[in-house]
Computed example of a mutant assay.
Amino acid sequence: MHNDRPTLVLLHGWGMNNGVWDALPASISERFHLHPIELPGHGNAPFQSHWRDLPDWADAVLAQAPEQAIWLGWSLGALVALQAALHTRTPGRPIGPGQQAPAQEVSSRRRAPSRIRALILVTANPRFVQAADWRAAMPATTFDGFHAALRDEPAATLARFLSLQVRGSEDARETLRRLRAGLAERPQPQPEALLAGLDLLREEDLRARLADIQQPALWLFGERDTLVPASVAERIELLMPQAQCQTIPGAAHAPLLSHGDEAANRITAFLAETLP
Rank of each mutant, 00 (worst) to 15 (best):
R160A: 14
A148H: 14
R151T: 11
A132P: 12
L176F: 09
L201H: 03
L227C: 07
Q215G: 10
M138S: 02
L200T: 04
A103T: 08
P191F: 11
R127W: 14
D212A: 02
D152M: 09
T141Y: 13
T141D: 11
A172R: 02
A149C: 11
G145A: 01
E223S: 03
A196D: 08
L164Y: 15
R209N: 10
R224L: 07
A196N: 06
W219K: 02
L164F: 15
L198I: 06
E174R: 09
F143E: 12
R167C: 06
W134R: 01
A159F: 15
H147Q: 07
V166G: 09
L220K: 08
T157D: 11
L158D: 01
G96V: 00
Q188L: 02
P94C: 01
P216L: 12
A131S: 15
E153G: 04
R173P: 07
A112P: 03
A148T: 13
I116E: 06
P94V: 06
R167W: 12
Q188T: 06
R151E: 14
V106T: 07
A118C: 06
A159R: 12
P216N: 13
Q188P: 06
R224M: 04
A101Y: 07
P216A: 11
T157M: 10
D171T: 14
R207K: 09
A137P: 00
I213R: 00
R111C: 09
A211K: 10
E174A: 09
R209L: 07
L200A: 00
D205S: 07
S107L: 05
Q99H: 10
